[in-house]
Amino acid sequence: MQTFNVRGMTCGHCSKAITQAIKARDDEARVDIDLPTGIVRVEAELSDEEVREAIREEGYEVQ
């Protein structure tokens, strides 16, 4: 499982956008988002950089 700190997520729409962006690259991916802490956990066949790129493309900052 990969864990990322993401800035800028504030609502359910943010969660949905990030989840869809990751699933567009791996439709079997499992994505768990904790909005209050900004933590995104991903279980997928994607590299860390591929996940980071998907999140960045949605306009969020990945630390």
Results as ranks from 00 to 15, higher is better:
D27N: 10
E28T: 15
N5K: 14
H13S: 07
D27M: 04
A17H: 05
D34E: 09
D48K: 11
R56S: 10
Q2N: 11
E45L: 00
A17R: 13
T37I: 10
R56I: 09
D34L: 04
Q63P: 04
H13F: 13
R52A: 06
F4S: 03
R41G: 01
I22L: 00
R56W: 01
A29F: 01
A21K: 15
D34M: 02
E50H: 01
V62D: 03
V6Y: 10
E49L: 00
R41C: 01
S15A: 15
D32F: 02
R30K: 08
V6K: 03
I39C: 04
Q63E: 13
R41P: 06
S15M: 15
G59N: 08
T3S: 15
I18E: 03
A17E: 13
G12W: 05
A44R: 02
N5Y: 04
K23I: 07
C11M: 05
E49H: 07
K16I: 10
T37G: 10
T3C: 11
E61Q: 11
I39T: 09
C14K: 13
D26W: 13
G59K: 08
S47I: 06
V40H: 01
Q63G: 12
K16Q: 13
E43Y: 00
S15G: 09
Q2F: 04
K23W: 04
A21C: 11
E53V: 00
D34H: 10
V51K: 09
R52Y: 00
V40S: 03
R52P: 05
T37M: 14
V6C: 06
V31H: 13
P36K: 15
Q2Y: 12
E61P: 01
A24F: 04
H13T: 07
K16V: 12
G12R: 01
G12E: 09
M9F: 12
E61N: 05
T37K: 13
T10C: 07
R25D: 05
A21E: 09
D34G: 01
Q20I: 06
C14V: 12
H13D: 03
E53K: 12
I55W: 04
A29M: 02
E45A: 08
E43F: 00
T37Q: 15
R52F: 01
D34Y: 08
T19C: 10
G12K: 07
E43N: 09
E43R: 04
R25A: 06
V62I: 00
K23T: 11
I22Y: 06
E61K: 08
A17M: 10
M1E: 06
E43D: 15
C14Y: 11
E58R: 15
D32S: 08
E61M: 04
E61F: 00
